[in-house]
Amino acid sequence: YETDHQDYCEVCQQGGEIILCDTCPRAYHLVCLDPELDRAPEGKWSCPHCEKE
């Protein structure tokens, strides 16, 4: 299903190369994640907010 994702990072509120959560509309820079990621994850990815739930 399609979600309207943010076009900015949930953490720093800036645009650029962001990865999109497959569960919610949030988006993140790899370096803004904690722990940060070296590269975009393959397959489905859930953001830290969704992982907690």
Rank of each mutant, 00 (worst) to 15 (best):
C47G: 01
D4V: 14
E53H: 03
D38S: 09
W45A: 11
W45C: 07
P48G: 11
P35K: 07
D38M: 03
G43N: 14
S46T: 10
G16K: 15
T3I: 11
D34R: 06
Y8T: 09
D38L: 06
I18M: 14
P48I: 03
K52M: 08
C50L: 03
Y8C: 06
C47L: 00
E51V: 06
P41N: 11
H29D: 02
C24W: 00
D4C: 10
V11Q: 06
H29C: 12
C47S: 01
C50I: 02
Q14E: 11
V31A: 14
C32Y: 01
V31I: 05
L37G: 09
G43D: 11
P48V: 08
E10P: 12
Q6V: 04
E2D: 15
Y8W: 09
R26A: 06
C21I: 01
T23M: 12
W45Y: 14
C12I: 00
G15R: 11
T3A: 07
C12T: 01
H49F: 06
E2K: 15
A40I: 15
G43F: 05
Y8N: 13
H29S: 00
D4Q: 13
I19P: 02
H29F: 00
I19R: 09
C9P: 01
C50Y: 01
R26W: 02
H49W: 06
P25Q: 03
L20P: 15
V31H: 12
E53Y: 01
C9Y: 01
C21W: 01
E2H: 14
C21V: 02
C12F: 00
E2Y: 15
E51W: 03
Y1C: 15
G15W: 09
K44R: 12
A40L: 09
D38F: 10
C24G: 00
I18N: 06
Q14K: 06
C21P: 00
E2G: 11
Q13N: 09
W45V: 09
C50F: 01
V31F: 09
R26P: 02
Q13V: 10
A40M: 12
C9W: 01
C32M: 00
E42G: 12
T23H: 08
W45K: 10
L30D: 05
E10A: 10
P48L: 07
P41G: 12
L30Q: 07
E17M: 14
E51L: 11
V31R: 10
Y1T: 14
A40N: 07
G43L: 04
C12H: 00
D4N: 03
H49N: 15
T23N: 13
L20R: 14
T23P: 02
L20A: 09
E2N: 15
V31E: 06
C9G: 02
H49P: 04
D34G: 08
I18E: 14
E10F: 10
I19Q: 13
A27T: 02
T23Y: 12
C24N: 01
C50A: 03
G16P: 03
H29R: 01
L30R: 11
D38K: 02
P41A: 09
W45P: 02
T3Y: 13
H29T: 01
Q13R: 12
S46N: 03
T23G: 05
L20K: 13
D22T: 06
H49V: 14
S46C: 04
E10L: 15
Y8P: 15
Q14G: 08
L37T: 05
K44N: 03
E36W: 03
E42W: 03
P41L: 12
Y1H: 08
I18W: 08
E42K: 07
H29W: 02
P48M: 10
P35V: 12
Y8H: 15
L37F: 03
E51P: 07
E17H: 00
E17K: 12
E42I: 04
C9T: 01
G15Y: 11
A40W: 04
E10K: 14
C21D: 00
E36C: 14
H49I: 15
D34A: 06
C32P: 00
K52A: 05
D34P: 09
E51R: 06
W45M: 05
R39T: 11
D38V: 12
P35T: 11
P25D: 03
I19V: 08
C47P: 00
T3L: 15
H29K: 00
E36V: 11
L37R: 09
R39F: 05
R39Y: 11
P25V: 01
A40T: 07
Q14C: 11
P48D: 03
D34H: 03
A40K: 07
H49S: 11
P25W: 08
C50G: 03
Q13D: 04
H49M: 01
